[in-house]
Every structure is written in C-alpha cells, then in structure tokens.
Amino acid sequence: MSKELKAVRRTDITRRQWIWKEMKKNKVAYVMVAPYMIVFTLFTVLPVVLSAVISFTDFNMLQWPHFVGVSNYISLFFDDDIFLIAVKNTFIFAAIVGPASYLLSFLVAWFINELPPKVRALVTLIFYAPSISGQVYLIWATLFSSDAYGWANAMLIELGVIVKPIAFFQNAKYVMPLCIIVALWTSLGTAFLSFIAGLQGVDKSLYEAGAVDGVKNRWQELYYITLPSMGPQLMFGAIMSITGSFGFGGIVTALCGFPSVDYAAHTIVHHLEDYANQRYEIGYSSAIAVILFLIMIGANMLVKNIIAKLGR
C-alpha cells in the first residue's frame, strides 16, 4: 500500500491543522451563518464592546473624546446620588417583578395544563394578551387617574376612605407599587408560553408510572415528576423573566412621566436615557450602560447556576 493512500488520523496532524481542515471542509456553513452573524455582531456585540470602550472617555458627540480612566465610574458611585437611587429602585423592581412574573407564569401554566385544549387556549390568550398589546397598559392611568373619574379614586371616595382624589402617579408613596403591578400585568410573555409547552411535553407515561408508584396528590406529582422533567424550560423561562424585569423603563415613563416624582420610580434605564438623550454625555451614559449590562448578566448567571444546582 502506497503512503499517499493512508487515511489521515486525528493524531497525525496538530490541532491547528485539524481545525483548519474542518473549516475548509465546512466552508458552506460559514457562508450560511455569515449574514446573520454580521448583523448580530454589528448591532448586538459591537455596541456592548463600544460602550465599554467609550465608558472610559468623556465623549459628548461634539468633541474628540479623551481618555479619562475610571472617573466616570467613580462619579457614578460617589458623586451621583440619583444614580444610587436608580440602582436601588432597579434592584427592588427586578427583585419583585422577576421572581413574581416567573412564579405567576409557571403557576398559571400549571393550573391550566389539565384543562381541555380549547379552554386552555382561551385562558392562555387572556393571560398572554396584555404583554403583546402595545400601549394597552395606559388603561391603568385611567383606572388610577388623579381625578375622581378614575376608578380607584371614585371607589375610595364612595367608601368614605378619602375626601379628595389622590394623584396616584404623582405621589412618591404610590408610584413604585403601582408600576410594579402594571409591569407584572404585562409580564406573562415568552416564559409563560414556554412553560405551557413544556408542561404539555412532559411524558404522560411518567404520570401513570407515578400514580402506580404511589404519588398521592398533584403537589407530589409536581415535585417528583413535573419539575424534574422541565429543567430546560425552567432555565429558559428564568432568563426571559429576569431580562424582562430590567426592561420596564418605558412603562414607568408612560405612566409617571420623566423624571418620576422625587425619582421614586427612577431606574438605571431612566438614568441612562437621561444622560444619553437629554445631556449627550455619552461617556458617562456608556458607563451606566456597562453597569446595567453587568447587573443583568450577573443576575442571569446567578439564577442559572441556582437552577442548574436544583436540577441535580
């Protein structure tokens, strides 16, 4: 047998040569991913990288930026009281809305799992609709409007609790809880649909085996069969809920105006928009964006690890 015909084995070549060979063999794969990966890189990856770079400068859209080291970050944490309020509010908001919307999505999906398909579809629609209906959340501004034509005020007056109408969205005491309620109302989105599908996908024979093996009630069934079979969905849903819980700035602005009264519902997103769109302090706002990015990734990683541990 001549030497040329001998097949190349993985061990005959270095790792680099092997990768190069694989790359050449799969040229077509690179052609296929190229259009999407280019758009993804330009409008998702590059903006993050660019934010990190700009956050170390004093860029303001007019003058050539200067390198200023970490001074933007230092100002944020030591000179900017409003930023600290925004961080606090963001954490309160995310810590309530994230887990609550996650639990709500799962519980509702689980409760409706055994309903007949047509009824289930209807209930799914009722719970999912607020999250896709654009600015329908403005109805809460009507329900809680500052005059007596709003439901909340009219009812409280009728019941004799108050004499004068309360300006709910202009009152520092009420803005945060109200915004949290409205955010929750619109939060049964992708995670919810994922749970519904995941529950439908659990192998029915497991339930039957469970019933034979002495699973006594639905709670045991949930704990011993349903949850362990849904690990991947629970993970995906968590990421959707957490990421979503940081993105409710638009709702707050629409309901309470900008800035919200006494900064009571001022979040990092608002602080970012304030410095970027109103003051054009791009360097400073990039530092805010980097911090927000790190908080989101950190929160997601943390929860991901917790869920992965529970699954084991």
């Binding site: 903006p47 993105g247 997103v269 791009i282 964006a289 990734i297 997601n300 990683m301």
Partner: peptide, 21 residues
C-alpha cells in the same frame, strides 16, 4: 453560546452605541 448569552441583557443597554454606529 454568544447568541444565547445575549438573551441575558435587554436591548436598552445598546441603544446609545447603536446610535453612534
């Protein structure tokens, strides 16, 4: 993996630099 990681942050983070780009 990179695409999956990007599900973990909200697009508001990138609005400013997207504008510049």
């Amino acid at each position: 993996k990179t695409i999956q990681t990007s599900l973990m942050f909200h697009a508001t983070v990138t609005t400013v630099t997207s504008f510049i780009l």
